[in-house]
């Protein structure tokens, strides 16, 4: 690829830059889904610039989270391949990968359409980093043992990213579809929602295959990871809202009446938090119990996992986490 550097162009734009005619058509055949939203049809003049910027920030942040999913699922695919896992696991994972590439593109294009005034700094792209240590490497002399460790690692990643992360994003996207008053954010959220439903289900199915192959140590590590992941999700999803603020209350997230203030597919912190807590209790915990996990114990113990101190090394965090 030639042309200006990523730095000069703004990273989001660099990610969306066309390459060759043939690569473009391979990409579209594999990744785009009909009807692909018409980003050019978005009418910038209809909305206040503050509203558009706020929405663009939500959508570009989501784009980066989706990019993180491509990064995470490709690592899980790699680990399960080394572990010689059943091909059906790999095939389903391969679908997740192309879906996440679609989500990156949908979200980034939506963000750019909403806020064409955004400069390179606004659309600057982070390098994805996995929220867990790298997968263990294979020791050729102890292959069975290595594969067991790889399956344990993959189970922890799938528990975190799919069983929790994907299952949480489904109602969040459902709410975004409801509150959006413009066809573009609604179309983008609807496409992503279809995929995330599948991804959450994949998580529980994959765990049903992997967990019975683990030993006691790996099962304990999975239970510990559940607690750590719940702590992390709560921090990053709920902001300042706590379960104490919401318990016993019902929040109704409703499609706006005609004439209501415009919404380009954004939720409030309280809405995100309510969906988080309700989904954990109503959908996720009951599905984790048959896997032999104890989600209520993990939840009660989540206070043991404060945010990693920024000066700590990844190794120190990994070894002191439990």
């Amino acid at each position: 690829m030639s042309g200006p550097s990523n730095e000069a162009r703004g990273d989001a734009e660099a990610l969306l830059t066309p390459t060759t005619t043939k690569l473009g058509s391979m990409h579209r055949n594999q990744v785009h889904r009909a009807p692909w939203p018409d980003f050019d049809a978005f009418d910038v003049a209809r909305y206040d610039v503050e509203l558009r910027r706020h929405a663009a920030w939500h959508w570009i942040s989501r784009a980066q989270a989706e990019h993180g999913s491509v990064h995470q699922f490709s690592a899980v695919t790699h680990a399960l391949t080394e572990a010689r896992a059943p091909v059906e696991l790999l095939g389903a994972l391969a679908r997740l990968l192309t879906d996440e590439v679609r989500h990156v593109e949908l979200c980034a294009r939506a963000a750019k359409a909403f806020y064409p005034e955004g400069d390179a700094a606004f659309f600057r792209w982070r390098t994805p980093r996995a929220p867990w240590p790298d997968a263990p490497s294979v020791d050729a002399d102890r292959r069975e043992e290595s594969e067991l460790r790889l399956r344990g690692w993959a189970a922890r990643a799938i528990l975190t990213a799919c069983a929790l992360g994907e299952t949480l994003s489904e109602p969040m996207l459902e709410a975004i579809v409801l509150v959006a008053t413009d066809p573009l954010p609604r179309a983008c959220a609807e496409q992503i929602l279809k995929d995330e439903r599948f991804h959450g289900r994949f998580g529980f199915e994959a765990l049903a295959v992997l967990v019975p192959t683990l030993d006691d140590a790996e099962r304990d590590a999975l239970q510990t990871q559940l607690s750590r992941a719940l702590a992390g999700f709560e921090r990053t999803t709920c902001g300042k809202v706590r379960v104490e603020d919401l318990a016993g209350r019902e929040l109704e997230i409703t499609a706006p009446e005609p004439g209501a203030p415009p919404n380009l597919g954004t939720l409030t912190e309280e809405e995100f938090a309510a969906i988080f807590y309700a989904t954990l209790e109503a959908r996720i915990f009951p599905a984790l119990e048959p896997l032999g996990l104890d989600p209520m114990r993990a939840w009660a113990e989540r206070g043991r996992f404060p945010a990693a101190r920024r000066e700590a090394s990844a190794e120190a965090r990994a070894t002191t986490a439990d």
Partner: peptide, 18 residues
């Protein structure tokens, strides 16, 4: 002035600190 949306992934812990 704007809040950033939550990222429904537990991102702080164990993240490599390059």
């Amino acid at each position: 002035t704007i809040n950033v949306p939550p990222d429904p992934r537990p991102v702080e812990e164990e993240a490599p600190a390059p």
